[in-house]
Amino acid sequence: MHQRQLGKSGPRVSVLGLGCMAFSGGYGPPDDAESIATIRAALDAGISYLDSGDFYGMGHNEMLLREALRGRARDQAFISIKFGALRTPDLKWDGYDLRPAAIRNFLAYSLRRLGTDYIDLYQPARLDSPVPVEDVAGTIADLVRQGYVRHIGLSEASAGSIARAHSVAPIAALQIEYSLLSRGIEDAILPAIRTHGIGLVAYGVLSRGLISPQVTATTGSAGIRGRMPRFHGENFAANAKLVASLQAIAADLGLTLPQLAFAWVLSRGDDILPLIGARNRAQLADILKAADVTLAPEVLRRIETAVPKGAASGTRYGAEQMAHLDSEAP
């Protein structure tokens, strides 16, 4: 597995990471045995970067990681954890809490569930909070000095918030959605993190499965896709045409559609680390091959013509969730 440096002065990690959210539901019932096997297969393939959140399955995801990592050296895995999201007993979202005391509390629980004494990258899942981002970065910086955290991250932050946080403590990485169908970060956020020497961790590379030859209009009615406008009505019909164009390009290159999507994101810069959201070993094995794919300039031009920036129909989240995204602030 190739490696890339996370930001200008951050650690070296695998060029692809494993996004673990789907192991705790959202895209269908979880299968713990297959999830653990998939995490171990990723580690065996050289993937070091494992991304999770303390609210994925209300702690289930972190305990799953603990089991998957059992018997392995701690430094074989670079563990990235998002925090701050609040849930109700009936599993609904209930806002975000980024107070310093809450951050320390979240971390204490994560360390126990993971069975480790430090987290490699720690970041707020959203910045939708009255707590200034400077205070959030400063609190995590204190935890770095105490040895509980190695690096500070942000997620779905705007260019302005990134600059404010980075002025307090060095930010290693920004996690944000980036794909052939979600390129809004190219306007201000991507230039901003490059100015500051911050790495980009890209999630949603397959647009929640929209960039897939198997996706159908009924796919959007299940799980979290039911709240995503791109999977419904006229939006889906328009997006399906874009995906069909990409499928034709992938077929001409002898690639699968997921391989093409990941190869494209990898082509956007050596400072970008895409997350694989595979739910099983077969999906993982397919996408791993993208690490060895180099797209020729003429192929990149063909992709740009087929799916230009801004071509996707519908927002990437529903209106309520979009309102919580600092990254979408005008």
Rank of each mutant, 00 (worst) to 15 (best):
R87D: 01
E67I: 03
R72M: 08
P89W: 01
L114N: 09
L69C: 13
R99V: 09
E67T: 15
Y96W: 14
P89R: 08
P100Y: 10
G84I: 12
F83E: 01
G71W: 01
L114W: 08
D97L: 08
A77G: 07
D94R: 04
G95N: 06
L98S: 07
P89G: 07
N105V: 00
D90K: 13
I81A: 01
R72P: 02
L107D: 11
L98T: 01
D94W: 00
W93R: 14
K92E: 09
F106S: 13
D97F: 03
L65V: 12
S80K: 05
L91N: 15
R87L: 14
F83I: 14
F83Q: 07
K92H: 09
I79K: 07
E67F: 01
F78M: 06
I81L: 14
K92Y: 01
D94I: 02
L69E: 10
A68F: 02
A73M: 01
W93Y: 13
F83A: 01
P89Q: 06
R113I: 02
N105R: 13
R74W: 02
P89I: 06
L107Q: 10
A77F: 12
F106Q: 05
R99C: 08
R87S: 10
P89K: 10
F106V: 01
A85T: 13
A85F: 00
R87F: 12
G84R: 08
D75Y: 04
D75H: 14
G95H: 08
Q76R: 15
R113Q: 11
R99L: 11
D90F: 02
G95K: 04
I79D: 05
A73W: 00
F83C: 07
P100N: 05
D97A: 05
Y109L: 03
P100E: 06
G84W: 05
E67M: 06
A68E: 03
S80D: 14
G95V: 10
R74P: 00
K82Y: 07
D90N: 14
G95M: 09
R104S: 04
D94Y: 00
L114R: 10
K82T: 11
R74F: 01
F78I: 04
R113N: 14
